[in-house]
Every structure is written in C-alpha cells, then in structure tokens.
Design a protein around this nucleic acid. Structure first.
Length: 651
RNA sequence: GCCGGGAUAGCUCAGUCGGUAGAGCAACGGUUUCGUAAACCGUGGGUCCGGGGUUCGAAUCCCCGUCUCGGCUCCA
C-alpha cells in the first residue's frame, strides 16, 4: 500500500500500481470524468501511469492551469498528426503553450492558408472522435529516433541529441500509429478534447533566433466543451472593442498619418487634453518628491551618444544621423553630426556637469517630459503602444551610494502611486537583470552585481512580488519594469526604474564628498508612465474609453432641450468653462434623446440638460453617464458638485 | 527586418463571372421646438492605397511599392 496526500491534507491508502484515473474514480465519478492529468509532488503526470510511491497528489481538471495546459498540449499533438496526414512533406519542429494558447511550428513548402486550417480542423475532429489513447514510451536516444518514424526530422534529431547529451530520459507519446517526441503529460485519449479551434498562423524562427530558418506556426486553443470555447471566442471579440486604435479613432483622441510618418503620433485636441491632465497630475508630484524640471533639445551631437554608448549599441534602431558640421554644411567627415535623441540621459548628465557638485547637492533630481526618437522595426509598430517618436516622463537622479536604496524606494513608491491613482491593479513587476552570456551589457560584472543587489534589497524591503529575468536589463544597468497587458493580451512595459553605475563612469561624473575628495555618483533613471503615448494607449483600453471624470477630454456637455433656451445654455456653458471644466455645448436642432445618446456614446461623464423649467429657475438637470438623471439643482450648487467630481486624485 | 492577411465615401462595410461604384451611420440643407440613449425629408461626398502590366474593357486578374493588421524577432 502507498499513501496519497490530497490538497486538503487528507491521506488515502491505495494499492501500489493504482493509476491516477483509478484513484480519481475512487473519489468520485464526476471527478474521474473531468480529470485530465494528475500532479504528483508538483509534477504534472499522465492519469494512466501506475503510482508506485507515497506522494502528494492533485487531480488536475480544466479548472487547474496545469490541466488546461495538458488539454491544449494534447490538442497540439492531434494538430501535428492532422498536419502530417494532410501535408506529408511537413516537418513538425516544436510546440509550446503561452497563456490560453498552444502552438506548434512546422517546416512546410508553403505557408498554411485559411483553407488549409479548415481541412486540418476537420481531420483533427476525426482524430478526436476516434478517441485514440495517448501512450507514453521512455526510450534511449537511438530507439527514440526509430520510434518517431515519419515524425523524425532534423529538428527532432537536434532535440534528441541535446537531451541525450544532458543524459536525460527521452520520452515519446503515440496516439495510434503516430508518434511524437514529448515530455508530457497528456490526456488519456484524444476523445477528451471536446472543443478546439485553430486561431491563427504566423511565421516563427527555429529556437526563436532570427538567423535560423523561419517555420510556420499554428496557434490553437481547446476547451472541455463547445460552450466554453464559444465563450472564450466571444470574450476575445468583446475585448477587441476596447482596442485603443479603434477607440482612439472613434473618440478623436489621436491619429497617425502616413504623410507624417509611420509610428509618429498626432495628438488630437481630445487626446491632448487627456495627456495634458496626466502631465499636470505628475508635475504636482514632482515638486513633492523634490525633482527640478529641465528642458533640453531634441538633438545632440553624435559624439555625445558615442560616449553614452547609445549610438553604438542601438545603431540599427535609430533614425540615421544628420551629418553636418559646425557651419551648417553637410559634413565631409561622416563621423561628424547630430542624432535625434534616443534617450534624455546624456542631456541631463550635461546639466549635472554644468556646475560642480558636492555631496550636499545630492540627491540631484532632474525631470523632463522628454521626447525621444527611435527607428523601431516596421513590423513592430502598433498604434500608440509601439511608436517611433514618444515622450518619456523621464527623470535622472544623481545620488551617493548611501542614498541609493532609499531613493530607489521613493521612485518605486511614485510609480505605485501613479498606478494606484489610475486604478491599475493588473500589472506585474519584472526585475530585469544582465545576461552574463550576452555581450550586450556594458560595465564590469562587479558594478552589475552591486546594482542588482540594490534592486533586490529594495523590492524585498517593500515586500513586492516580482520575477527576476536575465537579459531584460538595459545595457547600462538592471531595472524594475511595471508590465501590463493590452486588450489582445500582449504585454507592454509602462513604468520603469533603473539603476546605473555605468553612465556615471563613461561620463566620468563626480561630486566632492565630505572628505573633500571626488567620488562617483550613481544614477537612477525612472519614468512612472514610461512613454506618454504607450501609457495613454493602455489607459484607453483600461477604461474602454470611459475615463474617470478628472481625465475625460470633455467633462461636461450642456444639452439644451429647445432653441428658445440657448441664451441660458450659453450662460451655463460659460459658467462651467470659467470654473475650468472642459465643457461643450450641443446646440444642434436635435431632440434631447438624441443629444443624450450622443453624449453617452462619446463617454462624456456629465450632462447638463437645460429646458424652459431650468432657464426660468436658474437651475440645471444633472445627468451622469451610465447612471442617468440625478435630478434638478440650482446652477451654483451643480457647479460646486462638479468641482468635487472633477478634481484630480490626491493622497 | 521576416512570414502571412488586408486596403472601396469621414466611419463600418457590400460590390456576383472582368462590363459606367452601393448601403447604414456621420456631414450638410430644410421641416419639426421636442424633457433624459437614435424625429422626418432631401443633398453632397470616391485617385476603389500608389505605380506598372494583361484585356475591347480592371475595384475585380498579374507584378512592384506604400501603409496597415496578426504573429516572429527586436525594444536604451
């Protein structure tokens, strides 16, 4: 007998050799039916494997993230079989899952078409209906290669070679006579896959490396029932309605014109009002946190960016330099010239250097809404979230070593305050570290170790959840990134805080310490919004265009019921503007219902309906978006009420 | 940058087999003066993304380019 410990702590004795499925059946018929796999001591395992030792066990169903992954993974194998049935020349490479989706990459003579996908789905349905069992085999490398049969190809050989080299057991799974190399786990049989859909195709590089051949990827998802699949698909459709590119156009927030250039955002009056409000909000905080505001130009000499390292490191993703000499003529020396600034730090460093600094001057905090230009790859551009010109709410803090961690904490506090004020709860914190294997990172290993431990100390001290990710650092230092997802579930970095020992060294920055001798300051780069463009793009999606009243481009709209009251409506309009409310007057000869509908769809938070009654009594009928009529109030009282409703958040 | 999809009125989209380009909404004009989510009638509006080709004839077929969308890769 062996004993199995369930998640609730209860322990059950079963005969050695009992399978996970039999155990699930002993608990309940329903559970056994829903079971997709088991988790044994935290490892996901097939249901039909005999249990040989006492363990902690969880029966995995679709409710468990691991269970979902198993179902979709198994569906991926069914897809691979279907692809090979229909395209005998196809070479399956590898698959994996990401979020709700599973993908499998194939090398094929031509990319898959929409019609191909339909045929593949049809073949998959046949395989699932046949309810073919998945069987696991563990084999030595040479036998595994044999076992693969028609699935064998250069990709599989490479993977088996790597696994064998690491001395790992090689496992394969078969469904019927089709075999694939696979770690597992899988559902017991293809019949468990009740509902699936091939979502999209894409080109993808082998091992994710651009220098490798490009394969054709198919994404799919699977659910235990048709109903759940349909719900998922309609959720995606629903989410697309929040897309900032769509809402940005509908609400007249921004536009991008190919005549100006790809990735160059034109802020329309309403988008600009929103941005201005965000900037004003942050400016208030900057004073409180001891920042000094500066302004710097949009270009700088090439040599400046050679010193900082930006030019050599990011040569391929910058607008080409403006080659000209001091006389305004085209430079003969192609090394001479100016660059559109890709970062604000070098300019701020020059402000730091402009006057001698002592330890009494530090922390020295310089802030600027600085617009930078980067020539992003054409395939990367996306609305406001990935652009070629954007404004960072940037700041650089020059600090002494003993000030560093406290200042870091204050910058993180500021970012958290901003996110909280805008009701962002769904973000993750990424601690981006250097990848020691990569040459992309400047400075000595010792400096990096110090910077990384500074960040770790601060994040731990603040009790934050974060994930450490190698290779995600900036070239000059490690960073804390605040990462959110857009309506299509793509991740974007918003706020960032970076520790930098490298640029102070490259620029030979100094301050005079209390000992009278020169010391090297440390820099913190930080931007709570990150890029105003990206932040506003995400903000549009976050609020689905219905911004909190203090941010709304139009906060109040006056809706006269009949033409006769237009003079009174004008008076109300003027009173609202006099109090700084962003107000519009809808004087069209339309019925009141029409005007209300327009204001509602344009997401105006407050509507002031004025008719004869209001004009006579000097009042307004207040309507709040989505809530409806709030009743009639004297004009003065309404304005007082709106002042409160439209105030910026404070803390 | 790479792979694939797309581009028709301000917006959303239809356009059959290659035969003179359409709808709804919006805009504009008129009528209506109306009380909390769409009054009625009328009018204007097109480089069918750009260039080339095939054809008696191209929005439609072919080629090149641009922009855009979904992925991949990249992201200071």
């Amino acid at each position: 007998m062996i004993s199995l410990t369930l998640p609730d702590g209860s322990i059950r004795e079963v005969a050695e050799g009992t399978t996970g499925l039999q155990f699930a059946q002993s608990i309940g018929k329903r559970l056994a039916g829903d079971a997709l796999a088991i988790s044994l001591n935290g490892r996901t395992t097939d249901l039909n494997i005999p249990l040989t030792a006492s363990s902690e066990i969880r029966i995995l169903t679709f409710k468990d993230p691991e269970g979902r992954a198993v179902l979709r993974h198994s569906c991926g194998h069914v897809m691979a079989q279907a692809v090979m049935d229909l395209f005998p020349g196809a070479a399956p490479a590898a698959g994996d899952w990401a979020d709700e989706r599973y993908f499998y990459d194939f090398q094929v003579s031509r990319p898959f078409t929409a019609e191909d996908l339909q045929k593949i789905e049809q073949r998959m349905t046949e395989i699932c209906q046949a309810d073919v069992p998945f069987k696991r085999m563990e084999l030595p490398a040479d036998q595994a290669l044999q076992a693969l049969g028609s699935t064998r190809n250069l990709f599989k050989e490479e993977i088996i070679g790597d696994l064998a080299g690491q001395g790992q057991v090689i496992s394969c799974y078969s469904q019927g006579d089709w075999v694939d190399l696979c770690l597992g786990a899988h559902v017991p049989s293809t019949g468990k896959i009740a509902a699936f859909k091939l979502l999209m195709t894409a080109g993808a590089y082998w091992h994710g490396d651009e220098s490798n051949p490009q394969l054709q990827r198919i994404y799919l998802t699977a659910f235990p029932s048709r109903k759940e699949l349909d719900e998922y698909l309609s959720q995606i459709e629903e989410a697309k309605k929040r897309d900032h590119r769509k809402l940005g156009q509908e609400l007249d927030l921004f536009t991008i014109s190919s005549d100006v250039g790809s990735g160059l955002v034109l802020w329309m009056p309403k988008g600009a009002a929103l941005r201005f409000e965000l900037e004003t909000f942050l400016r208030g905080k900057l004073v409180e946190y001891g920042y000094q505001t500066v302004y710097t130009p949009h270009i700088g000499k090439l040599d400046l960016y050679r010193t900082s390292g930006h030019f050599p490191y990011y040569k391929d993703s910058q607008f080409p330099p403006i080659h000209m000499n001091e006389h305004g003529a085209e430079a003969e020396d192609s090394e001479e010239g100016y660059l559109l600034k890709p970062m604000n730090c070098p300019h701020h460093i020059k402000i730091y250097e402009a006057t001698p600094k002592s330890y009494r001057d530090l922390p020295y905090r310089l802030a600027e809404f600085g617009t930078v230009y980067r020539y992003e790859q054409s395939g990367e551009l996306s609305g406001m979230t990935r652009v070629r010109g954007f404004t960072q709410d940037d700041a650089h803090l020059f600090v002494t070593p003993d000030q560093l961690e406290e200042e870091l904490q204050r910058t993180v506090d500021l970012v958290l305050f901003i996110l909280r004020s805008l009701d962002f709860k769904d973000y993750r914190i990424r601690f981006g570290k250097r990848d020691p294997q990569s040459e992309k990172f400047g400075g000595s290993a010792g400096l990096w170790d110090r910077a990384e431990s500074n960040i770790r100390n601060v994040l731990r001290g603040m009790n934050m959840d974060f994930s450490e990710e190698a290779g995600e650092a900036a070239f000059y230092g490690p960073k804390i990134d605040f990462v959110v997802r857009d309506c299509l579930n793509r991740e974007w970095q918003l706020g960032t805080v970076q520790v930098d020992y490298v640029l102070p060294e490259r620029f030979d920055l100094k301050y005079i310490g209390s000992d009278g001798s020169p010391h090297r300051p440390i820099m913190i780069h930080r931007a709570p919004f990150g890029s105003l463009e990206r932040f506003v793009g995400i903000l549009i999606e976050h609020f689905a265009g219905a911004f909190p009243a203090w941010l709304a481009p139009v906060q109040v709209r006056i809706l006269p019921v009949v033409d006769e009251v237009l003079p009174y409506a004008e008076k109300v309009y003027a009173a609202c503007r006099a109090h700084g409310f962003r107000t519009e007057l809808d004087s069209r000869a339309e019925k009141i219902g029409y005007k209300i509908r327009a204001a509602e769809t344009e997401k105006v938070p407050f509507m002031l309906v004025v008719g004869r009654r209001e004009a006579e009594s000097g009042s307004v009928s207040l309507r709040k978006r989505t809530q409806g009529d709030l009743g009639t109030l004297p004009l003065e009282e309404t304005i007082g009420k709106l002042r409160g409703e439209l105030a910026r958040p404070a803390e």
